[in-house]
Design a binder for these strands. Structure first.
Lengths: 242, 242
DNA sequence: ATAATCGTGTTGTCCGACAATAGCAATATG
DNA sequence: CATATTGCTATTGTCGGACAACACGATTAT
């Protein structure tokens, strides 16, 4: 033996608490929906004090692996696409990404998503899309809130229909990032509702015809139309989305 | 006045510590790279105890908004694409996404990324790509480690060249998710290195010719070739990537 | 039977103390 | 004089215990 030693594992106890629990979640010992033991038990099991356990819990909490149930108890929750999307879009915002970066991604991803959707969307999902569109048709022209909600919901439905959690999360995070600003923009865009409605119509038609190329093409147009709204509203696309 | 009251803000103190600091980061009061005050000062400023402050810090830490500098001090760090990618891919893994979902996303995103790259990649970036390829050419056929590293590095370079942090993060998270498994797969794929090399060659040529369609097409082939490796290695694509 | 009350288990917060570290200054050693 | 060692100090990591706040369920009162 060479008499040398491995560097001893020297991480703060709270990170080890965090990792230990994360480990048990990922290997399935702690199943989705199971209750986490109470803090006192965790203390006993890990042999540390509550302060330490609680710091570890905060790490888990922020990661989204545990959520509060009734009575403030924690239970295990494997992150869903929506969680990942929310966390990612928040980080992007804090990281200072710009509108043009988001639109760039939007213009790249969504047409392909639409192409896939034409192939994969179940008839029920297409029906849902139509429903979203009908809802939009019924709202007043000046009701910008509802207009934006419908426009985003339409995107959301397409994303959901892909039956792929990875893509869903990515598309959703894009939705979240434009959603807020779109509210301000649409209010300044003339005939926004009509434009959105007609794009949605073409898209639904393409989906029903299972025509991926067509769907991609209309999606492209739809997005660049939305983007044009930002120009009209004189939003600086190089500005951070905040 | 209507005599009714707003529900009072009733969140645990540690989350308010978290939000207060996050707020100061996002509005720029705490600039990137600035040191966070020491815990004792934070206690004084917020009027809470260290335990509480520390729980708030753990939330920030996990979000990636603060990182440890020398002497364990924290300093502010706005999340970069790499951080977001790492967090997202970890969450995806914990959420149990499958290989086929990842490949699906890969096959959808990367060809379009390649198309963009053909337009945007600077001559320097293209030169870097060539360098990655040359490195790969020099490694031994049996050196699967290095082969995978190069293959992933090639993807990485393309992603970086898009000059878009949103897309970079998304593509990088995909890289992270396949990277690990690719290691096992490539070892079982005959002539993997040669196949990768020739795909990279075609891609570089397409980039140099600024031919987006061609780049997208070769990327498509490259990815489905990689995917085929999983079939050969008899990996169940409906398995979680873990 | 419904509402008010009480108990109990658990989380949220506080306090105070001390160990473990990292960085730096002071000191010893050659 | 230069370098290695030691000690000092500021700060973080962990501890232990205490109590308030709160949610829930059981019990009692009306």
């Amino acid at each position: 033996m060479d008499g040398s030693f491995e560097p001893i594992e020297r991480a703060p106890a709270y990170t080890r608490v965090y990792r230990a629990i994360e480990e048990k979640i990922s290997d399935g010992s702690l199943k989705d929906g199971a209750h986490l033991p109470i803090e006192a038990d965790l203390c006993a099991q890990f042999g540390v004090t509550r302060s330490t356990v609680r710091e570890g819990l905060r790490l888990l909490e922020q990661t989204g692996l545990i959520v509060r149930g009734p009575a403030k108890k924690f239970f295990i929750k494997r992150p869903a696409a929506a969680d990942i999307a929310a966390a990612a879009s928040k980080s992007f915002a804090l990281g200072g990404v710009t509108f043009s970066e988001v639109f760039d991604a939007l213009a790249t991803l969504y047409p392909e998503a639409a192409r896939l959707a034409a192939r994969r969307l179940s008839p029920e999902k297409i029906a849902d899309l139509k429903k979203v569109r009908t809802t939009l048709a019924l709202v007043a022209d000046e009701n910008h809130e509802a207009t934006v909600d419908s426009a985003v919901a339409f995107f959301q439905q397409i994303a959901k229909g892909l039956d792929n959690r990875v893509m869903l999360a990515m598309l959703q995070s894009l939705n979240l990032m434009i959603g807020e600003s779109l509210r301000h923009v649409i209010a300044r865009t003339p005939k926004a509702k009509d434009r959105i409605l007609s794009a949605q119509k073409k898209l639904v038609e393409a989906f029903e015809a299972r025509d991926g190329d067509l769907a991609a093409e209309w999606m492209r147009k739809h997005i660049s139309d939305l983007k044009r709204g930002y120009d009209v509203a004189e939003v600086d696309l190089d500005e951070a989305i905040l």
